[in-house]
Nucleic acid binder design. Structure first.
Length: 751
RNA sequence: GGGCGGUUAGCUCAGUGGUAGAGCAAUCGCUUUACACGCGAAAGGUCACAGGUUCGAAUCCUGUACCGCCCACCA
């Protein structure tokens, strides 16, 4: 008996992977409809679905996304083999701010032009050009990882269907009173010239000077600040209500000229003031500090803006047009000159910077669009968590109950606490962005003078200046077209719709009925708040369902010593390069091994090499089995008690692997099958078989069948983890229960 | 300031009440006809520290130290 010739040489991943990829692609079994059509999946089989967290369209696949792909592919391949109606839906993300910033930088480098030189339309054309070119790269890389995604359902975050869903979602939320336009203090990024959400801020520790001074010689209270330039915008000094030192001044008002600027200061008492910090008195600058804005709310104070979008002073006098940093020094100098400065100390300070651009965030009052997370609306749909149909609920409560009720499980569980904490501290979500690339807000303005056409003069003044709807309105009095709001939406607004916008919402498609809620959302723990919480919010309100039943979180990928991957360390390991060198199966195993949910994964070239050896081991096991068992197949009867025991042993391994996958311990599952294949099957069972086979007769026949059967079971159990080498072997097997291993039946085991 | 996680063999990590485990590395031996991308053997740990509960603790409780992460932020 002889094995096919390819087994005479060590496993060659490069050769085999290309061949296997072609087989998969041709089969179209990643599409669940095809599986049903060809009888692989029963039409009424339980559905199992995951939407791929869309990688950035302009990106390349790094280890982080590779880890995500591997985890999800293991879950998907297992489910498919278990006979479930399995859908893994791919998509790419336009990554609005990041992509626009990248294209703008490129254009400026090459042509010395800004977006304003090009204009909105031209810039968008350039961005589309850029994304079209780069999207092939990432799609190709996903395929090479072995990701069994259904490309027939591919979605792009700003394609037509998704844009329609976003507009529809916005309108529905607006009509329910969940979206409003308001003047509020927002995080303004002067570098990116846009607002950003609280979650897009990163804190950087810097040294700062804390100045303690009085506004004027005859002002009774000294205050402390690291930003004296903002004090020209002060309208109050706040002290703690119980602070006896200042009680006598509360309610008094003062007119002062501060650094050439006339200001009017009222002394107010407010609980938010710390008695023990600085002088115990806080200069209130409503327009340029979030906490101060809230104090102004409570005491009905005016809120003059003194800094503009370019972080320059807008007041008259010596500070006019100065940048905030220069103005700070100018004010400090003036304070010294006027002998108002009492103290100047060095303090460490966390300053807010914009995650994307690194710009120092300037809190500014601006008219923006917000999602109101605290207003009640009536839950129209079915039961959501503990909220019954018809019951009034806020978005905040909705997000909380989804997890609290157990409708959604977060794995590992400890992240649930983080989730609640985030919700409890959630403020209204600013969703408008002043960039050009993204989903336009479906709000329409007709704020210029409306001159009614002849015969409609009686309607002067009746036209509506702001309309929120999907299609562009035309004024029914003057026939003028409305102008669309220039802002675009926060990228997480559309991402929040992802589980159902990809399935065809707002149409009531059969895909939505079959695959929503999705089974699992698998993503990095770093975006649980950005994304996971918003998906729960959107799906709850718009679809009346949770978006997924389980949230599986993974960590970041580190190098072999546990260090972060960084350019300066030069420790980057490219998953595709590694795959090229050692085979993609080895890369996949390396990412999974030793990684519990929610913890970081470690990868090193040595680790990858180790699993390449494992792939070769399987290859050679197959060679031995085929050389000895070819021709018998797995149909021959297994007669010996010892052999039945071996089969039963494999069954318990199948059980272990299955259970570990069920509980998302992919590391333990991989370890269990690895250990069985190498150290039990190869080292012991095959070794002892050599003499048994030599003996011949019925005993040998039984063992031959057993070996073949064990091999078949091992290949199935290994397939989700190492799809390439197992499929490559499968196609050489003489007897098998499915044309492709990817749709073979998962080994049975008793519970 | 609040919260969370970690600390087990040289390295990376499993193990969550009953005589300490894996992979990799390091050591020794092996032309053993599936595989040197291999096989066999041996070696390696007072499970961070202190106290407590228990017949029994790496495992449960309390505290301490160090490392890491997240959130908030004092103007």
């Amino acid at each position: 008996m002889s094995a096919p010739e390819i087994f005479l040489k060590p496993y060659n991943p490069k050769e085999q992977e290309a061949e296997v990829l072609a087989l998969w692609e041709k089969s179209d079994y990643t599409n669940p409809d095809t599986c049903v059509k060809r009888g692989v999946t029963k039409p009424d089989a339980e559905a199992y679905s995951i939407v791929l967290p869309p990688p950035n369209v302009t990106g390349v696949l790094h280890m982080g996304s590779a880890l995500m792909v591997v985890i999800e592919d293991i879950l998907i391949r297992t489910a498919r083999m278990q006979g479930k109606r399995t859908l893994w839906l791919p998509g790419l993300d336009s990554a609005a701010i990041a992509t626009q910033a990248k294209v703008e930088t490129d254009i400026y480098k090459k042509e010395k032009k800004t977006r304003h030189d090009l204009g909105r339309e031209e810039l968008l054309k350039r961005i589309t050009q850029f994304t079209d070119e780069s999207k092939a790269t990432i799609i190709n890389q996903l395929k090479r990882m072995g990701a069994s995604l259904d490309w027939s359902r591919y979605a792009y975050t700003i394609d037509e269907a998704r844009s329609a869903a976003v507009a529809e979602a916005f309108v529905r939320m607006y009509e329910a009173g969940l979206i409003y336009r308001g003047d509020r203090i927002v995080n303004w990024d002067p570098k990116g010239q846009t607002t950003i959400s609280d979650d897009e801020i990163v804190y950087e520790e810097r040294r700062a000077k804390l100045y303690t001074f009085k506004y004027a010689k005859d002002f009774p209270i000294a205050i402390s600040t690291t930003r004296p330039e903002t004090k020209v915008g002060d309208t109050a000094v706040a002290v703690h209500p119980n602070d006896e030192r200042y009680a006598q001044f509360v309610g008094k008002e003062y007119d002062i000229v501060f650094c050439d600027v006339p200001i009017h200061i009222k002394i107010v008492a407010d609980e938010s003031v710390e008695k023990d910090f600085g002088t115990g008195a806080l200069g209130v600058t409503p327009a340029h500090s979030i906490t101060d804005w809230e104090i102004a709310d409570r005491h009905n104070l005016p809120r003059p803006q003194v800094i503009n979008e370019y972080a320059k002073m807008t007041v008259e006098g010596r500070l006019k047009d100065l940048k905030t940093k220069d103005a700070r020094e100018a004010v400090a100098a003036w304070l010294k000159e006027e002998k108002l400065l009492e103290k100047e100390e060095d303090v460490p300070q966390n300053i807010s910077t914009a995650e994307r651009t690194g710009g120092i965030v300037e809190p500014l009052p601006k008219r923006q669009w917000f999602v109101n997370v605290n207003v009640k609306f009536k839950n129209q749909k079915s039961k959501l968590g503990n909220v019954k149909p018809g019951q009034e609920v806020t978005l905040k409560e909705l997000m909380r109950t989804a997890v609290e009720s157990g409708a959604i499980k977060i794995i590992p569980e400890r992240f649930e606490k983080n989730y609640y904490h985030w919700i409890d501290n959630l403020r209204d979500w600013c969703i408008s962005r002043q960039i050009w690339f993204g989903h336009r807000i479906p709000a329409w303005h007709h704020e210029q003078k409306c001159i009614p056409k002849q015969g409609r003069e009686s309607d002067v003044g009746k036209c509506i200046p702001l309309v929120v709807r999907v299609e562009k309105p035309i004024c029914q009095f003057c026939d003028a077209e409305y102008e669309q709001d220039p802002d675009v939406l926060d990228t997480w607004f559309s991402s929040g719709l992802w589980t159902f916008s990809t399935l065809g919402w707002p149409q009531e498609t059969s895909d939505i009925k079959t695959y929503h809620p999705t089974s699992v959302l698998e993503t990095g723990y770093d975006i649980i708040f950005f994304w996971v919480a918003r998906m729960i919010l959107m799906s709850g309100f718009l679809v009346g369902q949770v978006p997924f039943r389980k949230v599986l979180l993974h960590g970041i990928v580190r190098d072999g010593q546990g260090r972060k991957i960084s350019k300066s360390l030069g420790n980057n390991i490219d998953p595709l390069d590694m795959g090229e060198k050692y085979g993609m199966d080895a890369v996949r195993m390396s990412l999974i091994a030793g990684m519990a949910p929610g913890t970081d994964s470690k990868i090193s070239e040595e680790k990858v090499r180790g699993y390449k050896h494992f792939a070769n081991k399987i290859w050679n096991i197959t060679r031995f089995v085929l050389e000895n068992a070819n021709g018998r197949g797995d149909n021959a009867e297994i007669t010996r008690k010892e052999d039945r025991a071996l089969i039963a042993e494999a069954e318990t391994i199948a059980k272990q692997v299955s259970q570990h996958i069920d509980t998302f311990r992919l590391d333990l599952a991989a370890d269990a099958i690895y250990h069985f294949v190498w150290h039990r099957f190869a080292d012991e069972i095959i070794e002892e078989s050599k003499s048994i086979l030599k003996g011949g007769g019925e005993v040998a026949d039984s063992r031959r069948s057993t070996l073949y059967s064990l091999l078949s079971t091992c290949l199935k159990l290994l397939h989700p983890f190492m799809p390439f080498v197992t499929e490559a072997i499968w196609k050489e097997l003489p007897h098998k229960d499915a044309e492709l291993l990817m749709i073979a039946r998962w080994p049975r085991y008793t519970e």
